[in-house]
Computed example of a mutant assay.
Amino acid sequence: MTRERATPPHPVLSSYYRDAASRQGFVRSLFDRTATHYDRINAIFSLGSGRWYRRWMLRRVGLKAGDRILDVATGTGLVAREASRIAGPNGVIGLDMSPGMLAECRKNLPIALVQADAQRLPFPDGHFDFLSMGYALRHVSDLHRTFIAYRRVLKPGGRVLILEIGRARKPFVQAVLRFYLGRIVPTLSGVAASRDSRQLMEYYWDTIAECVSPDDIVSTLRQAGFEDVRHYTSLGVFHAYAGSAPAR
């Protein structure tokens, strides 16, 4: 039986880890070491715009009161917090592979939390109405396997929303993004938080610069069986991917 070819979100970044097999261990360790500073880093990065944008996109894609939602790579709970305001806190489960991030999330957000990998979701088939992921798709090891796992745990007709940041099509916008995310944010993060926080944001930028295109992400969602796949872009760099599990 031929093994399906992996679809990583970006090539191996050898300045951070040795090979593809080392990627997840590096990412988990990096997020564990920066968890206590992450909300401060996010405030620097988002300039205060993140909260309303997350809530707007969740509503736009169809999250509603009473939905059961899984927030993958929940981190400190930035997306889950907005989802709980819409769906209600009892309907939200946050999942992350980093125990450090889950510990930070647990301090401020009264939702159920699970430590697990995005590709190996420990839930039965057809369990959720909605699945979200905020700015973490670049950190999985295989896009196709991840999307297959997402589709499996969604109810027929359930919705997925993936928020990401990516390369800009316009050279000027890309140059500004590179200067801000590639230089300013890592420097400020190192000063305001820690040396590890600076490395996190340097890695963050490198994964953006090397990530596959939005068209590739849309195509992989469709190959994984999602229907009505849509791609939204804001300010040329903020990307949102949405789709529905087959209604059967």
Results as ranks from 00 to 15, higher is better:
Glu4Trp: 02
Arg5Ser: 13
Ala6Gln: 12
Pro8Glu: 09
Arg18Ser: 14
Gln24His: 05
Val27Tyr: 00
Arg28Val: 01
Ala35Asp: 03
Ala35Trp: 00
Thr36Phe: 10
His37Glu: 05
Asp39Thr: 03
Ile44Thr: 08
Ile44Gly: 01
Phe45Pro: 03
Ser49Ile: 14
Trp52Tyr: 11
Trp52Phe: 05
Tyr53Asn: 01
Arg55Cys: 07
Trp56Ala: 12
Trp56Pro: 01
Val61Ala: 14
Leu63Ser: 11
Ala65Asp: 04
Arg68Cys: 11
Arg68Pro: 04
Val72His: 00
Ala73Ser: 15
Thr76Ser: 13
Val79Asp: 07
Val79Gln: 03
Ala83Tyr: 04
Ser84Leu: 07
Ser84His: 08
Ser84Asp: 05
Ser84Ile: 04
Ile86Ser: 11
Ala87Gly: 06
Pro89Cys: 06
Gly91Val: 09
Ile93Met: 12
Met101Phe: 07
Glu104Ser: 13
Glu104Gly: 11
Glu104Met: 12
Cys105Arg: 06
Ile111Arg: 04
Ala112Phe: 10
Leu113Asn: 05
Gln115Arg: 10
Gln115Val: 01
Ala116Asn: 02
Gln119Leu: 00
Asp125Tyr: 00
Ser132Leu: 10
His139Phe: 10
Val140Leu: 02
Val140Ala: 02
Leu143Ser: 10
His144Trp: 13
Arg145Phe: 01
Thr146Trp: 00
Ala149Lys: 00
Val153Ile: 07
Gly158Trp: 04
Arg159Gln: 12
Gly166Ser: 05
Ala168Tyr: 08
Lys170Phe: 13
Lys170Thr: 13
Pro171Asp: 09
Arg178Gly: 04
Phe179Trp: 08
Phe179Tyr: 04
Phe179Thr: 06
Val185Tyr: 06
Thr187Gln: 08
Thr187Ser: 12
Ser189Met: 01
Gly190Lys: 09
Val191His: 10
Leu200Phe: 01
Tyr203Glu: 11
Trp205Arg: 05
Cys211Thr: 08
Ser213Glu: 12
Ser213Gly: 06
Asp215Pro: 02
Asp216Ala: 15
Asp216Cys: 15
Thr220Ile: 12
Leu221Asp: 05
Arg222Pro: 05
Gly225Trp: 02
Glu227Lys: 09
Asp228Ile: 01
Asp228Asn: 06
Val237Tyr: 06
Val237Gln: 06
Ala240Trp: 06
Ser244Ala: 14
Pro246His: 00
Arg248Leu: 04
